[in-house]
């Protein structure tokens, strides 16, 4: 299997989160495990991909009894 770049991994993670939106929330470890299984990605590259998703604003961290990675809502949440 060809080695995935950080950008490609970030895209794959983003797609995974997008598909599960509204049904399942993923933690960083869930994404790492999925990428390792699908592409043989190592932990460090996965961490860089998550960081890329966060710094670009494509994803955000949320907290609901644990920390999750999600796509930001279209509108800010109502208080």
């Amino acid at each position: 299997m060809a080695e995935m770049t950080v950008e490609q991994l970030a895209d794959a993670m983003y797609e995974m989160i997008k598909e599960a939106k509204g049904m399942k929330k993923y933690k960083a470890t869930d994404l790492q495990k999925a990428m390792a299984e699908r592409f043989g990605a190592d932990k460090q590259t996965c961490k860089q991909a998550i960081r890329l998703l966060m710094d670009s604003g494509r994803c955000i961290y949320t907290y609901f009894g644990g920390s999750y990675i999600e796509i930001p809502p279209d509108q800010p949440p109502a208080p």
């Binding site: 966060m54 604003g57 955000i60 949320t62 609901f64 809502p73």
Partner: peptide, 9 residues
């Protein structure tokens, strides 16, 4: 809980 934080953190 919910969605609050600073970018990247």
């Amino acid at each position: 809980g919910g969605i609050v934080g600073v970018v990247g953190y």
